[in-house]
């Protein structure tokens, strides 16, 4: 039985000392990680290798700690970067180039409240201003653990090589450096704000490639995801009604009106304002609808779509909004990388 005497006495002092001691221990084990800089090209050709360099400092405050180095990178999902990335580092605590290993998806993060490393980073670090929800964190860990002695800093240079897709895009990368013992110690998981991790958000990366620009950064009325698809994929048509002033800016209901063009030159129009064509409201003037083109346009087994054109309408069908707020339809051409 715990007996705390708050009004003086040995028992109260004993508990005060224990609690204070615990707090001191929590503080002195705090790790300090800073990303000093990230060098990354402003533009690269599609299907080439993006090389970036992270310069970081890992310090330890009044204690010695042994941990593995962890690096996280925010990338577009369509790069399939988990299978197309190599990460290595050099440091003042090691000799030569040290390779890092991919942390498998779903691996729990320490202090992550049960979340994986990838999800913990997404919740804690965020999406770096990318507006299209087709991004992910990929995480890497050094195979060995390293000791950071009391008061000594380790300077680390991490080299990241990612084979990017050929998609024509504009994307905001993000870089995270932390260690395997403390993880992010995220405030998103009710932890105290700390310097357990370092982040860096470089200027936007432009990948030049064929086709329409997939712009993750600038608000647009509608950009279909994924960027590459066939008529047998599920594609998502968003509508950001406030990106450009238009006739549906204040609409509470938005409907899809689309025309499919087959590879044989036929056109199929689906333009009725029904529950089936109504976009789902996401709040804040954002709507979306995911469609399976083969099903929506009722294609036979021998038919294939080459492209679609689409506009958004109100419930009456009389108000039409297309590209840049005009009545010109948005267009999307099917094809794979």
């Amino acid at each position: 039985m715990i007996n705390i005497k708050l009004r003086g006495g040995k028992s109260a002092w004993n508990w005060i000392w224990k609690i204070t001691g615990t707090l001191i221990v929590l503080v002195i084990f705090a790790c300090s990680i800073t990303i000093n800089n990230v060098t990354q090209p402003a533009s690269i050709p599609g299907a080439s290798t993006l090389t970036s360099t992270i310069t970081a400092t890992i310090g330890q405050v009044n204690a010695t700690q042994t941990s593995a180095l962890v690096v996280g990178i925010l990338v577009p999902t369509q790069w399939n970067a988990a299978n197309n990335t190599t990460v290595s580092f050099t440091s003042t605590a090691t000799t030569g180039i040290q390779p890092m290993n991919l942390i498998p998806t779903g691996t729990p993060a320490p202090t992550g409240g049960g979340l994986s490393w990838q999800t913990d980073m997404l919740n804690t670090i965020g999406s770096a201003g990318n507006l299209i929800n087709e991004y992910e964190y990929i995480c890497f860990e050094s195979p060995q653990q390293y000791t950071v002695n009391n008061g000594n800093n380790i300077d680390v240079v991490v080299t990241v090589n990612i084979k990017v897709s050929q998609t024509n895009m504009l994307f905001n990368m993000a870089y995270v450096v932390c260690e395997s013992t403390d993880g992010l110690n995220s405030t998103a998981n009710s932890q105290s704000p700390s310097t357990y991790y370092g982040t860096f958000f470089p200027p936007s990366l432009r990948v030049t490639g064929p086709g329409t620009l997939l712009d993750f950064i600038d608000p647009q009325l509608s950009v279909i995801t994924p960027g590459f698809a066939t008529d047998n994929d599920i594609i998502t048509l968003p509508f950001n009604s406030t990106a450009v002033h238009n006739s549906l800016t204040n609409a509470s209901q938005v409907f899809l009106c689309a025309t499919g063009y087959t590879t044989t030159g036929d056109s199929i129009k689906v333009c009725q304002q029904t529950n089936a064509s109504q976009l789902q409201s996401l709040g804040g003037g954002n709507f979306q609808k995911s469609i399976w083109p083969r099903g929506l346009f009722g294609l036979s087994a021998s038919q294939s779509l080459d492209s679609i054109e689409y506009v958004f309408t109100d419930a009456t069908g009389s108000v039409i909004v297309g590209f840049n707020g005009t009545s010109t339809p948005f267009s999307y051409t099917f094809g794979c990388q």
């Binding site: 999902t77 992910e136 994929d233 599920i234 998502t236 789902q280 995911s290 469609i291 399976w292």
Partner: peptide, 11 residues
């Protein structure tokens, strides 16, 4: 999910 993005609520 498609490429990790949940589709359950939108399709």
């Amino acid at each position: 999910t498609r490429n990790g993005t949940d589709l359950t609520s939108s399709f």
